[in-house]
Design a binder for these strands. Structure first.
Lengths: 190, 190
DNA sequence: TCTATTTCCTATTGATCTAGTAGGGATATG
DNA sequence: CATATCCCTACTAGATCAATAGGAAATAGA
């Protein structure tokens, strides 16, 4: 039940790439991303290599090079990316659809643990296989605008446009039902 | 997104202990459980030690010793057990309620990844913190009876009662809504 | 062409975790 | 006392994680 750092950085990178591109900045440099999000550069490079090999990003090298998304954000599902980097989503292999392995229990059909874990698996994949990069980018942008905050990797020194390009807003407000966040939860309305 | 073997065996042990006890067999031996479920004995012993220290099981040693549940099954939640053995349920610590740790991202409130992972965490805990051992044991027993199967660890050589004791059946059929299982999915009705 | 900047590629490493194994001690039964 | 059980400590081979290191190849501008 854990996302590796590698996986976490990969998703962060994709999301940032998505946000930047949506704001008219289709290409980001690894170093840029690393400093802003405080990730180790060399590690991030490795991750990009992996993402590139899988067709999620493309790159340009040399001066003013960088990485950009290689396909439409609406076709990048989180589940698929996580599977690529961290392996199967299921808590135990005997409930994995994509990478099933029989377990050691004598009777799989009547295994209570399996029933429970199948539900857990389904709950996880229901979210991760449904939401795409487009969804998350959209929601994040909405939040950022609502609170009048500029995403950090856009505070570039040179050539930063003073006015943000008009944003697409395909969904009505409240389209996706993310639980509102609130720090560590606990009490909410005082 | 993964349950360790240690965690898996712990849950298996508890479930079997629950089933056995519900059938009038309050105590099981580690060796017995290990052979029937095909788990390494010594490893299982270690796990029992841990479960005992946390108050889930109690033990009796010497000849005819064994392990039994130390508290009512309805008070044993899966989430708690897994947290004990495998640590936090949340995919990343910054969305963990029980073991929150701030992550490296510059702005937690506007972090898209965090929003998504919070949903995943909630989906997981919603299941694991709701279902108790009592629930799973009940469902499993129902399934076993429906299909007229005897749980393997009850096929003990000596002193096995010929007639199973009357079972409690506190819930109407279909009370808990587990997805019906079906082998590896794929095609179903040929 | 030369230099600076970027991605690309391969190898290595220290730390931690996983899934056990090993060996024997303490305790209970008959 | 013999036997069966849990109890306790230590150890380990292997994998995985999260980087780090060093340089090669490509690109842009002077």
């Amino acid at each position: 039940m854990k996302l590796s750092k590698r996986g976490e950085y990969a998703l962060r990178a994709l999301i940032d790439l998505g946000i930047a591109s949506e704001l008219g900045w289709p290409m980001l440099q690894a170093s840029e991303l690393a400093t802003k999000e405080k990730l180790p550069i060399k590690f991030l490079e490795q991750i990009f290599t992996q993402l590139k090999a899988a067709g999620y990003v493309k790159s340009r090298r040399g001066k003013f090079g960088g990485y950009s998304l290689a396909r439409p954000m609406s076709q990048i599902k989180f589940g698929t990316v996580i599977r690529l980097i961290d392996g199967p989503l299921a808590p135990i292999r005997c409930v994995s659809q994509m990478a099933y392995v029989r377990c050691s229990c004598p009777d799989e059909v009547h295994c209570g643990l399996r029933m429970l874990m199948l539900d857990v698996r389904n709950a996880i994949t229901k979210l991760l296989d449904r939401y795409t990069l487009a969804d998350i980018v959209e929601i994040t942008l909405r939040k950022l605008r609502r609170d009048k905050v500029t995403p950090p990797f856009l505070s570039r020194s040179t050539k930063l446009r003073s006015v943000l390009p008009p944003m697409v807003n395909r969904l009505g407000d409240g389209g996706l039902k993310f639980n509102s966040v609130g720090p560590t939860s606990g009490r909410r309305r005082k």
